[in-house]
Simulated assay, not measured.
Amino acid sequence: MDTNVQSFAVANLQRRPDVVETGGFVAGFDPATASPFINYATPLPGARPTSADVSSLIDAFRMRGLLPRLEFAPDAAPAVEAALRNAGFTVEEAHSYLVCTPATLILPPSGGKGGVDPALLVETPAFDEEYAAVDAALGESFEGVHASSAHGVARLRKLEDGGGGVRFVRAPDGTCAGAASCSAPAVGTAELAGVGTRPAFRGRGIAGAVTAALTGAMFDRGAESVWLEFSGEGSRRVYERIGYRPRGTRLYMRLEA
């Protein structure tokens, strides 16, 4: 599954507006933002980069004024971490990831997906103000790490229109209490990311509800699996109750100026 997830990372970056393929790496850039969480690179499965390959990759970032940064599953390309360290890259974070398949997705007795409160109504945004509310809620959920912006709103709409998905639970005031997004499937799998609940609405099962709804939607669209990363043991338990299972690790590395 590491190779499947890594192959997905390659295919997903190849969807960016500006793509560079060099020395066994694929870098995906979006000129609309300088965010390192959008502009990054990943190796091809099995890549064995030389120092010249890494230098060429660094140049692709530097010429755009961006921080050289990679995300990848190290088990799918074991030689890459050492090559990056030799060039001065350091580990930003290492995240475990979980995978759900149609066989592991848990269906509660009520018939709703994920063992979540069936009273929670999960919706798909349809209007600009709903996408803006989702983007604002996710910005609040992640405490400004992903600040709300017009680009963020456009990105969410593009996900939904492009074969991925966005789901949310509405707050009593008509805005968004919590939401999640998922990429369009590629190489048989899809990445579910950006699961967030505003602080005032936590502990009500919203994260589980939107995650389960999106996971089921991706299976309906032909995905053979859906994977995600978790931020702590609390969120891990939420995802495992839905049917996600531990499968591997992804590494985040960057080269500071």
Rank of each mutant, 00 (worst) to 15 (best):
A94G: 13
A82Y: 02
G28E: 08
K158E: 12
T211F: 05
F25V: 11
R69W: 12
E71I: 04
E129D: 13
V99W: 03
W227V: 05
A179T: 05
E130I: 07
A217L: 12
G216F: 03
A133P: 05
V116Y: 14
P68M: 12
P31F: 02
A27S: 14
R236C: 06
G115W: 12
A34L: 05
S96V: 03
T104S: 15
D75N: 03
N86R: 15
Y239Q: 04
R62K: 13
E191Y: 02
P49D: 08
L57E: 02
R241A: 14
S231C: 03
A32V: 05
F127N: 04
S183L: 12
L120S: 14
A77I: 00
P49K: 06
A209H: 04
E93Y: 08
G23Y: 09
A32P: 03
E224K: 00
A137G: 13
A83E: 04
R85D: 07
E224Y: 02
L67Q: 10
R170A: 14
R204G: 03
A217T: 01
A73Q: 05
P36L: 09
K113P: 13
Q6D: 01
P125S: 08
G164S: 14
A184F: 01
A76P: 05
K158T: 14
A190M: 01
E123N: 12
R254M: 11
V166F: 13
G216M: 03
Q14Y: 02
R85S: 03
D135C: 00
T189R: 10
P118C: 14
P246E: 07
S181G: 08
Y239F: 15
V10F: 12
A223H: 00
S149Y: 13
R247M: 14
P199K: 11
D59T: 10
E92W: 11
L156Y: 00
G205K: 08
T33N: 10
D117Y: 08
R167V: 09
A133F: 08
K158S: 15
A47W: 00
A154N: 11
H146S: 09
V134P: 02
R202P: 05
F29M: 10
G144R: 14
A11F: 00
F29V: 13
G222W: 00
S183N: 13
N4C: 13
A79I: 06
F37W: 13
T197E: 07
P118L: 07
M1E: 00
G205L: 05
A186M: 09
F201L: 05
E93T: 14
G139F: 04
A60K: 06
L44D: 04
S7W: 01
L214S: 00
G188D: 09
P185L: 12
G46L: 11
D2T: 11
V99E: 04
F89D: 09
G23N: 09
E130A: 11
S148A: 15
T33D: 07
T101H: 11
A136F: 08
L228P: 00
R170F: 10
G174Q: 15
I58N: 06
L159V: 03
E224T: 02
G188A: 08
E92A: 11
D2G: 15
P36N: 11
G65W: 13
T50W: 11
L251A: 09
